[in-house]
Design a protein around this nucleic acid. Structure first.
Length: 212
DNA sequence: GACCAGGCACATC
DNA sequence: GATGTGCATGGT
Protein backbone atom coordinates (compact mmCIF):
# COMPACT_ATOMS: atom_id res chain seq x y z
CA UNK A 1 0.00 0.00 0.00
CA UNK A 2 2.91 2.33 0.54
CA UNK A 3 3.81 2.00 -3.08
CA UNK A 4 0.25 2.57 -4.11
CA UNK A 5 0.04 5.74 -2.06
CA UNK A 6 3.25 7.01 -3.51
CA UNK A 7 2.18 6.35 -7.07
CA UNK A 8 -1.25 7.79 -6.47
CA UNK A 9 0.20 10.93 -4.96
CA UNK A 10 2.44 11.26 -7.97
CA UNK A 11 0.22 10.40 -10.90
CA UNK A 12 -3.21 11.02 -9.44
CA UNK A 13 -6.40 9.13 -10.25
CA UNK A 14 -6.29 7.40 -13.61
CA UNK A 15 -9.89 6.47 -14.44
CA UNK A 16 -8.58 3.68 -16.55
CA UNK A 17 -10.30 1.69 -19.21
CA UNK A 18 -13.22 3.91 -19.97
CA UNK A 19 -14.98 1.59 -22.41
CA UNK A 20 -18.49 2.80 -23.10
CA UNK A 21 -19.93 -0.34 -21.56
CA UNK A 22 -18.96 -3.75 -20.26
CA UNK A 23 -19.33 -5.41 -23.64
CA UNK A 24 -16.96 -2.98 -25.24
CA UNK A 25 -14.47 -3.57 -22.46
CA UNK A 26 -14.49 -7.30 -23.18
CA UNK A 27 -13.91 -6.75 -26.87
CA UNK A 28 -11.09 -4.36 -26.01
CA UNK A 29 -9.58 -6.89 -23.62
CA UNK A 30 -9.14 -9.37 -26.46
CA UNK A 31 -7.95 -6.84 -29.00
CA UNK A 32 -5.34 -5.31 -26.72
CA UNK A 33 -3.40 -8.54 -26.28
CA UNK A 34 0.23 -7.64 -26.82
CA UNK A 35 -0.86 -4.50 -28.60
CA UNK A 36 -0.72 -0.77 -27.90
CA UNK A 37 -4.07 0.63 -26.78
CA UNK A 38 -4.02 3.36 -29.42
CA UNK A 39 -4.22 0.67 -32.11
CA UNK A 40 -7.10 -0.99 -30.30
CA UNK A 41 -9.03 2.28 -30.27
CA UNK A 42 -8.83 2.41 -34.04
CA UNK A 43 -10.11 -1.14 -34.32
CA UNK A 44 -13.02 -0.45 -31.98
CA UNK A 45 -13.81 2.74 -33.86
CA UNK A 46 -14.00 0.70 -37.06
CA UNK A 47 -16.36 -1.79 -35.47
CA UNK A 48 -18.59 1.02 -34.25
CA UNK A 49 -18.55 2.82 -37.56
CA UNK A 50 -19.83 -0.32 -39.18
CA UNK A 51 -22.75 -0.70 -36.81
CA UNK A 52 -23.78 -1.14 -33.21
CA UNK A 53 -21.33 -2.77 -30.81
CA UNK A 54 -23.56 -5.61 -29.99
CA UNK A 55 -23.06 -9.30 -29.27
CA UNK A 56 -25.30 -10.83 -31.91
CA UNK A 57 -24.21 -8.52 -34.63
CA UNK A 58 -20.53 -9.26 -34.11
CA UNK A 59 -21.30 -12.93 -33.77
CA UNK A 60 -22.94 -13.00 -37.19
CA UNK A 61 -20.27 -10.94 -38.89
CA UNK A 62 -18.20 -12.92 -41.42
CA UNK A 63 -14.66 -13.58 -40.24
CA UNK A 64 -13.11 -11.84 -43.22
CA UNK A 65 -15.05 -8.68 -42.50
CA UNK A 66 -14.22 -8.71 -38.82
CA UNK A 67 -10.55 -9.24 -39.63
CA UNK A 68 -10.62 -6.24 -41.95
CA UNK A 69 -12.26 -4.01 -39.33
CA UNK A 70 -9.92 -4.92 -36.50
CA UNK A 71 -6.83 -4.83 -38.66
CA UNK A 72 -5.25 -1.83 -36.90
CA UNK A 73 -5.00 -3.79 -33.66
CA UNK A 74 -2.65 -6.31 -35.26
CA UNK A 75 -2.84 -10.12 -35.34
CA UNK A 76 -6.20 -9.59 -37.03
CA UNK A 77 -6.73 -13.17 -38.20
CA UNK A 78 -5.80 -14.57 -34.84
CA UNK A 79 -7.88 -12.03 -32.94
CA UNK A 80 -10.90 -12.64 -35.14
CA UNK A 81 -10.76 -16.28 -34.06
CA UNK A 82 -10.32 -15.36 -30.42
CA UNK A 83 -12.99 -12.70 -30.43
CA UNK A 84 -15.47 -15.05 -32.05
CA UNK A 85 -14.69 -17.69 -29.44
CA UNK A 86 -15.30 -15.21 -26.66
CA UNK A 87 -18.53 -13.97 -28.25
CA UNK A 88 -19.69 -17.54 -28.56
CA UNK A 89 -18.95 -18.10 -24.92
CA UNK A 90 -20.91 -14.99 -23.93
CA UNK A 91 -23.93 -15.98 -25.96
CA UNK A 92 -23.90 -19.51 -24.59
CA UNK A 93 -23.45 -18.65 -20.95
CA UNK A 94 -26.02 -20.19 -18.62
CA UNK A 95 -29.42 -18.68 -19.22
CA UNK A 96 -27.81 -16.45 -21.82
CA UNK A 97 -27.03 -13.86 -19.23
CA UNK A 98 -23.30 -13.42 -19.15
CA UNK A 99 -23.50 -10.19 -17.17
CA UNK A 100 -25.23 -11.97 -14.35
CA UNK A 101 -22.69 -14.77 -14.46
CA UNK A 102 -19.65 -12.51 -14.42
CA UNK A 103 -20.98 -10.40 -11.58
CA UNK A 104 -22.58 -13.03 -9.38
CA UNK A 105 -20.64 -16.26 -9.76
CA UNK A 106 -17.97 -16.95 -7.14
CA UNK A 107 -14.85 -15.13 -8.28
CA UNK A 108 -12.79 -18.30 -8.56
CA UNK A 109 -15.41 -20.04 -10.62
CA UNK A 110 -15.94 -17.08 -12.93
CA UNK A 111 -12.20 -16.86 -13.49
CA UNK A 112 -11.79 -20.57 -14.15
CA UNK A 113 -14.64 -20.48 -16.63
CA UNK A 114 -13.15 -17.53 -18.48
CA UNK A 115 -9.77 -19.23 -18.60
CA UNK A 116 -11.34 -22.23 -20.30
CA UNK A 117 -12.42 -20.07 -23.23
CA UNK A 118 -10.13 -20.07 -26.27
CA UNK A 119 -8.28 -16.79 -26.47
CA UNK A 120 -8.67 -15.87 -22.81
CA UNK A 121 -5.52 -16.22 -20.74
CA UNK A 122 -4.88 -15.02 -17.18
CA UNK A 123 -4.48 -11.35 -17.97
CA UNK A 124 -7.50 -11.15 -20.23
CA UNK A 125 -9.60 -13.06 -17.69
CA UNK A 126 -8.62 -10.72 -14.87
CA UNK A 127 -9.11 -7.67 -17.06
CA UNK A 128 -12.64 -8.76 -17.87
CA UNK A 129 -13.43 -9.51 -14.25
CA UNK A 130 -12.00 -6.24 -13.00
CA UNK A 131 -12.87 -3.77 -15.73
CA UNK A 132 -16.06 -5.23 -17.16
CA UNK A 133 -17.60 -6.95 -14.13
CA UNK A 134 -16.15 -4.71 -11.45
CA UNK A 135 -14.84 -7.67 -9.44
CA UNK A 136 -11.69 -7.54 -7.29
CA UNK A 137 -9.32 -9.46 -9.60
CA UNK A 138 -5.86 -7.98 -9.73
CA UNK A 139 -4.49 -7.68 -13.26
CA UNK A 140 -0.84 -8.51 -13.78
CA UNK A 141 0.88 -7.34 -16.90
CA UNK A 142 4.42 -7.00 -18.18
CA UNK A 143 4.81 -3.64 -16.42
CA UNK A 144 3.63 -5.02 -13.09
CA UNK A 145 5.95 -7.99 -13.30
CA UNK A 146 8.96 -5.85 -14.14
CA UNK A 147 8.06 -3.38 -11.44
CA UNK A 148 7.70 -6.02 -8.73
CA UNK A 149 11.03 -7.55 -9.60
CA UNK A 150 12.72 -4.20 -9.78
CA UNK A 151 11.33 -3.20 -6.41
CA UNK A 152 12.34 -6.53 -4.96
CA UNK A 153 9.01 -7.85 -3.70
CA UNK A 154 8.84 -10.39 -6.52
CA UNK A 155 11.53 -12.95 -7.20
CA UNK A 156 13.20 -13.04 -10.59
CA UNK A 157 11.42 -16.21 -11.54
CA UNK A 158 7.97 -15.04 -10.49
CA UNK A 159 5.22 -15.67 -13.00
CA UNK A 160 1.67 -14.40 -13.40
CA UNK A 161 -0.04 -16.36 -10.64
CA UNK A 162 2.68 -15.70 -8.13
CA UNK A 163 2.57 -11.98 -8.76
CA UNK A 164 -1.19 -11.94 -8.59
CA UNK A 165 -1.22 -13.72 -5.24
CA UNK A 166 1.36 -11.33 -3.91
CA UNK A 167 -0.78 -8.31 -4.70
CA UNK A 168 -4.07 -9.86 -3.67
CA UNK A 169 -2.78 -11.05 -0.32
CA UNK A 170 -1.33 -7.68 0.55
CA UNK A 171 -3.95 -5.28 -0.70
CA UNK A 172 -7.55 -4.98 0.48
CA UNK A 173 -9.83 -6.74 -2.00
CA UNK A 174 -11.50 -3.82 -3.69
CA UNK A 175 -12.27 -3.56 -7.38
CA UNK A 176 -11.92 0.21 -7.27
CA UNK A 177 -8.52 -0.04 -5.63
CA UNK A 178 -7.27 -2.78 -7.98
CA UNK A 179 -8.43 -0.82 -10.97
CA UNK A 180 -6.57 2.27 -9.91
CA UNK A 181 -3.47 0.41 -8.79
CA UNK A 182 -3.04 -1.44 -12.03
CA UNK A 183 -3.47 1.74 -14.03
CA UNK A 184 -0.89 3.49 -11.88
CA UNK A 185 1.58 0.68 -12.41
CA UNK A 186 1.17 1.02 -16.14
CA UNK A 187 1.73 4.76 -15.87
CA UNK A 188 4.83 4.12 -13.85
CA UNK A 189 5.97 1.57 -16.37
CA UNK A 190 5.57 4.01 -19.22
CA UNK A 191 7.49 6.73 -17.47
CA UNK A 192 10.08 4.37 -16.19
CA UNK A 193 13.47 5.78 -17.08
CA UNK A 194 15.13 3.75 -19.74
CA UNK A 195 17.82 3.39 -19.21
CA UNK A 196 19.43 6.55 -17.81
CA UNK A 197 19.55 9.10 -16.49
CA UNK A 198 16.85 9.27 -13.89
CA UNK A 199 13.91 11.32 -15.03
CA UNK A 200 11.96 13.73 -12.90
CA UNK A 201 8.74 11.79 -13.44
CA UNK A 202 9.71 8.82 -11.28
CA UNK A 203 8.12 9.11 -7.83
CA UNK A 204 11.05 7.53 -6.09
CA UNK A 205 14.66 7.24 -7.02
CA UNK A 206 14.32 3.50 -6.60
CA UNK A 207 12.04 3.41 -9.59
CA UNK A 208 14.78 4.48 -11.92
CA UNK A 209 16.95 1.81 -13.42
CA UNK A 210 19.93 4.04 -12.86
CA UNK A 211 19.36 3.70 -9.16
CA UNK A 212 18.78 -0.02 -9.05
C1' DG B 1 14.92 0.05 -39.67
C1' DA B 2 14.86 -2.00 -35.23
C1' DC B 3 12.11 -2.34 -31.31
C1' DC B 4 8.04 -2.44 -28.57
C1' DA B 5 3.05 -2.67 -27.24
C1' DG B 6 -2.21 -3.42 -21.39
C1' DG B 7 -0.87 -12.15 -24.53
C1' DC B 8 -2.18 -16.52 -25.89
C1' DA B 9 -2.08 -21.21 -27.90
C1' DC B 10 0.61 -24.65 -29.39
C1' DA B 11 4.95 -27.36 -30.40
C1' DT B 12 9.01 -29.12 -28.68
C1' DC B 13 12.49 -30.45 -25.54
C1' DG C 1 7.34 -27.98 -16.46
C1' DA C 2 10.19 -24.69 -18.90
C1' DT C 3 11.25 -22.58 -23.11
C1' DG C 4 10.51 -21.15 -27.99
C1' DT C 5 7.63 -19.57 -31.76
C1' DG C 6 3.87 -17.56 -34.66
C1' DC C 7 0.71 -14.08 -34.89
C1' DA C 8 0.89 -8.30 -37.50
C1' DT C 9 -0.08 -3.43 -37.06
C1' DG C 10 1.32 1.38 -35.88
C1' DG C 11 4.21 4.57 -33.11
C1' DT C 12 8.93 5.99 -31.58
Amino acid sequence: MEIYNKLYAHFGPQQWWPGENDFEVIVGAVLTQNTAWTNVEKAIANLKKDGKMELNRLLKMPDAKMARLIKPSGYFNLKTKRLKAVLNFLSSTDSGNWREFLKKAPLQKARQTLLSVYGIGPETADSILLYAANRPAFVIDAYTLRFGKRMGFLTDGAGYEEARSCFMENIPKSAKLYNEYHALLVMEGKHYCKPKPACAKCPTSKMCRSAV
